[in-house]
């Protein structure tokens, strides 16, 4: 019972923090991130995937509802049009869980899963933005300039934070 409540505190706090930090980091490093190769550190996706990787399904975190809610806030606060990341974030959680049924969790498989997740976020996010008439990029341009660098940046962040976050979740496991 005690274990459960600790995760139930850690997960939402981390989620909200990563949500706010995402915008702040984007602003502070805007010269590097919004330059010729537009990159985004997807910290919310990162935290969701870490949580799925390092906790069990029976921890009862209501992760789908949280991802749905934070997605709605993300759309409203950052994008201005609701309905894009609201459904992408739960989808990412679902896909990660689905793949975890077939493979064991370790750093290599996790990286691969995260890679798939980020590709989903990028492609569906772009499609959603296109539907809302928000995009200033053509699709080819997006693939050429934004896709690769964003993938690389997120992979690096994932690998750098993998062990620290793993330790954090381990620490609250007892």
């Amino acid at each position: 019972m005690f274990k459960k409540s600790k995760y139930q505190l850690l997960f939402p706090i981390g989620l909200l923090l990563s949500f706010i930090l995402e915008g702040s980091i984007m602003h502070i490093f805007s010269y590097q991130l919004a330059g010729k190769f537009p990159m985004v550190p997807y910290l919310v996706v990162l935290w969701l995937v870490y949580t799925v990787l390092f906790t069990h399904q029976d921890d009862n975190l209501h992760i789908y509802w949280w991802s749905f809610g934070i997605g709605a806030l993300y759309d409203s606060y950052y994008i201005g049009v609701i309905g894009i990341f609201m459904f992408i974030f739960p989808l990412v959680v679902y896909i990660t869980r689905l793949i975890l049924k077939y493979v064991d969790e370790n750093i290599v498989s996790s990286t691969m899963i995260y890679l798939i997740d980020i590709i989903i976020v990028l492609v569906l996010g772009y499609a959603g933005g296109r539907m809302g008439h928000l995009v200033y990029f053509s699709g080819i341009h997006f693939m050429a300039f934004a896709f690769g660098p964003t993938l690389l940046l997120n992979l690096i962040i994932f690998l750098v934070l993998y062990y620290p976050v793993n330790l954090l979740f381990d620490h609250y496991r007892q």
Partner: peptide, 15 residues
């Protein structure tokens, strides 16, 4: 003052 920037690579918005 600028608080944050939209974390998106297909949209350029400030808050």
């Amino acid at each position: 003052a600028v608080m944050s920037r939209t974390p998106s690579n297909w949209q350029q918005q400030l808050i």
